[in-house]
Design a protein around this nucleic acid. Sequence first.
DNA 1: AGACAGGGGTAGG
DNA 2: CCTACCCCTGTC
Length: 250
Amino acid sequence: MFRTYKEGKWHYVTARDRIFRVCQSAGQLEFQGVDREFLTSYFALDEPYPHILAEINRDSFINEAIRKYRGMRIVRQDAWECLISFLCSSAANIPKIKTNIEGMSQFFGKEICAFGAEGYAFPNPGTIDDYDKIVQAKTGFRAKYIQAVNDAVDEAFLASLKKMPYPEAKKALKCLPGVGDKIADCVLLFSLGFTGAFPVDTWMKKILRKWYFNNEDVSEQQLQDFGMKYFGKYAGYAQQFLFMAARESP
DNA sequence: AGACAGGGGTAGG
DNA sequence: CCTACCCCTGTC
């Protein structure tokens, strides 16, 4: 998610240890570097999109957001890379997160290339094992979290989350240092296929209070509960549409 | 120019 | 509930 760029007609994506590129035109998706199965999973193209949109379209606010941003997808990123990326996201912005991820990939990842594009794979769990280098990747106060999570997490743990019900999976993630409600929900939604997760960040707080609570003081927990109940099984999609709308309007 | 607040959040007081 | 956390950017 934080490792994409566009050059000419192609969108280049580095996902864990592979580089692929996609381009969309006239309703057709062209792709190189990965097979169809990978792409279908990565962009969650196996989800019933029209049904999802109908399901979350509960009012005129979200209806307008859907109209504007129809086509937006929610990726199923590699869970490990997603977890570390969102650990970097606290009190940060997107360029900063990109710098962190790129830095750690250069320090700990192996070189990869495809279509003349060169880069570094995102390092495996257990291999982000040098605190000084984590700091050198400009991660700041997040470095200690990254180190601890690197030591605590393996692929088996991440795979096990997929089989759990939402509340348990979230609880397990929140046991990790540096992972609270928001980051846990982002990992669940953007990598583990929990479409009902509803991450509440500052943008969501603003827009939800404005549109659904008459600008009253509402706790984060209340906003989160509201989002999940009101939008249902695909609340995560609603979250993304509202998020886009929130970021655009002043 | 140089200080200063605040950022897609969390842990600890 | 409120602040420190590291560091970069936008603003006065």
